[in-house]
Every structure is written in C-alpha cells, then in structure tokens.
Design a binder for these strands. Structure first.
Lengths: 210, 210
DNA sequence: TTGCATTCCACACAAAAGTATGGCATCCTG
DNA sequence: CAGGATGCCATACTTTTGTGTGGAATGCAA
C-alpha cells in the first residue's frame, strides 16, 4: 500500500477540516475519508485524533460533526451572520429588513442586534469612511458624543458623527465640504452605532452564468 | 397539554437554529428539542419541517445536523476563518504563521490563501487605511501597479501601493509626509495583496476574569 | 358536526456517524 | 533484531441522529 511522508496527509486533513469549519458545517469522519481519498474511515479518524492530541483541533466526544478549532470554542468570539440591508440613502430601512441581500460574517464584541449598510458619499472621508465602504451597525436608539451613528433624518439614512448638545442632536460630517446637520428632533432618529467599517479593494470575481 | 399561540414557538425555534448556524455547528433535532423544552423530538422536527416549507431554512436530507440558511448555501460565498498573524512591522512573519493570535471571518471573493495583519502608522491615510486597521491579505508574490500590497523590505513588513516601473518595484505611501520606497530587488519581496480593510470603532468589551 | 390546521407527546425503527479491534508496511532507534 | 512511531486498510459494533407512525387537544371554517 502506498503511503505519504509523515505529516503530509495530516496537513491535507487539517486544511479540509478548517475549510469545512469555516463554511459552517463540520465534516463527519466519512466525509473526511472521502475528501482525502482514504479507503477506510479509520484512516481519517487517526489523523483527526492526532490533530486533537496536537492541540490543533478539539472535539465534542461522541457527537456527530463534533470537531472544532480550539480557540474558537471557549474564549473565541463566535461568528454571527449579519444581514446586509442595502445602502445608506436607500429607501425605507424597515422594509429592507425583510429583504436583505446577503449576510456578512462578523464577530460581535458586544451583545446586540446588527445590520450592515453600504456607504454612499464622501462626507466621512476624514474619518476614513469612504464611498462604497460597508458599515456594520449595532441597533441602538441612543449613543454618545463622538460615536459614529446611522441616523434617519426625514426618512433618509445617513452616517455621521454624533454630537449631543444638551438634548439637541447634531450630526457632523468628517469632510470640510459639508456642514453639520441639526435636525428637528421629531424628524430624526438614531438607528444604531457604527462599530466596524470594511472596505473591499477587489471587485467580486465574475461568476459563471447559470 | 399546554400549547402556545400559532407561530410563537416557531420563531423561538428559528432564532435558536440561526444562532447555532452562525456559531458554526448546526443543531440536531434533539438539541432543538432540549433548547426549546419539548418532551418529544417530533415536536422539534415538525417546526423544522415547517420552516423548510416556508423557505426560511433548507436542509440536506437525511444528514446529521443538515439544516442551513437558504441564501447561505448555493449562491452565497462561504465564510473562511483567516489567521491574524500580528501587526505589520512586527518581527518575522514566517514565524508568526505558526503562532497566530486568532481568526477573522471573511468571505473570500477569490480562491487563495489569506492572512490578516494589523496596520501600524499613518503612511496610507489618504487611501483610508489608518493606524490600527486590519488588512486582509491574499498571499501572492506578484501584483500590478495600483495594488495595495504587503511587502517585506529588509525583513520589515509594510503596507503600500505598488508601482512597477519595468522590473523595478516602488512602494508608494498615501500620505505626503512620506516618500516612496525604492527597495533593492534582493531585499524586497511581495507577500500578498490587500483585498480588504477593516476598522473597529469600538474596543473589545472587557471580559470577566477567569 | 366534520374536517383541517396547528401545537404538542410517545415510541419504534432505520440510517448515519462515532468508535474499537485487527492487520499490514515502512522507517528509525536502541 | 525488536520495539515504537507513522501511514494506511478492513470490518464489526455501538451510539447518535433522522424519520415514521400513532395519538391528543384546541380553534376555526364549512
């Protein structure tokens, strides 16, 4: 029977398992067996057990699809899929909640409900938030001065830096070409706080036609 | 037997399943049963089947832990956990690969191997890349003019915009306070192309002492 | 009243999935 | 040479997990 140099198949197994873990469905032993091309499920199992011994994988004993990455379980923050609701400036965000256009993976640092929006315009350029960036927003109706928030002003969403002057809300741009917005309190509502900004420097690859 | 108003338990089931999906380990029927508090596994199953009928969940027939979110399967890009290797300017990146300090979830737009780095300095401020930002990098040794790359110059990693003049490599900052780097070709190596920039606007929450 | 839909329970069975035991071959070290 | 480690195969057994069938109770519409 043919056999590979020590450690080589181990790496292939590890890579395959990591891919599956990242995809959200850990593999069974028999799936590892198939993926690597073993004739016997026991071959897969021995590699997996060794990976656990080495501390590179951990597992729930006796549970199906029970392997996981060590740092991912106990201390590591878990990944959440956040709905991408559309773009700032798009229409009614309440409706967009029902028809989100995909998910964005994130690891929340705080408990809460999150949504993602695409940024339009350059009003926050000095804060390093550019046209086309993605903002991840935690839903909350209050924030403090200095927070970057998504606010609804006259039913139009906008990303700005919040300044509270007493009870008065000011929405400050980070671009000298724009003036602060001082909305009528009845027409302004904070939707949430921007907790993360993401920028893709590469366009999506063209997918094949289906 | 006590029973809830129509739809109420369904939502609880859905929420639980979504949490589990986001955490990376879909639940078994018996786990759904336990989580909701049913006495019978069949109760869990019927809710799950209904969620599939409604199009809110999908499943791999007959497979353990086989449920998934519909848009997440076929067309949706799968999530990959990318190792965070440390910060640009830190020591030897080759060693850092063995001792990465966590994972960052991303949905790659192209096939390849990825790693993440923390940015130090403000040399790319005009490109909206700030101190403390996280760059997600696809490993590649070649890039084209205009790409933002991670390069190793005299064993020091740096994030810059690449400019190729013939065979000569120039590494351009996006900040007028810095000059382009024109490294000796023997001392410069491209490690990869920056494909995504992320900024956290919120510090990690303090975790309880263990 | 009957039929249907919804929300639940109980139990048995089938298949998937984890685990155990035996075996072979190669290489290296004591 | 023997023993141990590593990389594999083969098979059987055990447990987990999915599925099927039967049942009960409630509410609503025909």
């Amino acid at each position: 029977m043919s056999r590979t140099p020590p450690g080589q198949t181990r790496e292939r197994v590890y890579r395959y398992v990591c891919e599956r873990l990242a995809a959200g469905l850990p593999p069974t032993m028999r799936e590892v067996q198939s993926a690597i091309g073993f004739k016997s499920v026991q071959s897969a199992r021995e590699h997996m057990e060794k990976l656990v011994e080495e501390g590179r994988l951990a597992k729930h004993e006796g549970k199906s699809r029970g392997y996981y990455l060590p740092g991912q379980g106990a201390g590591q923050r878990s990944t959440t899929l956040v709905p991408l609701l559309g773009s700032v400036r798009a229409g009614n965000l309440t409706e967009a909640i029902e028809d989100h256009s995909g998910y964005v993976p994130m690891q929340p640092r705080r408990a809460g409900e999150y949504f993602a929006l695409l940024v339009e315009g350059d009003s926050m350029i000095k804060a390093g938030i550019m046209e086309g960036d993605l903002v991840l927003v935690r839903k909350q109706e209050r924030a403090v001065t200095g927070d970057v928030v998504v606010a609804l002003v006259n039913d139009e969403a906008t990303v700005k830096t919040l300044k509270l002057r007493g009870q008065r809300i000011e929405l400050h741009p980070a671009n000298t070409r724009y003036k602060p917005i001082v909305p009528d309190p009845d027409t302004c509502r904070i939707l949430g706080k921007v907790v993360e900004v993401r920028r893709h420097l590469e366009a999506p690859k063209r997918t094949k036609r289906r």
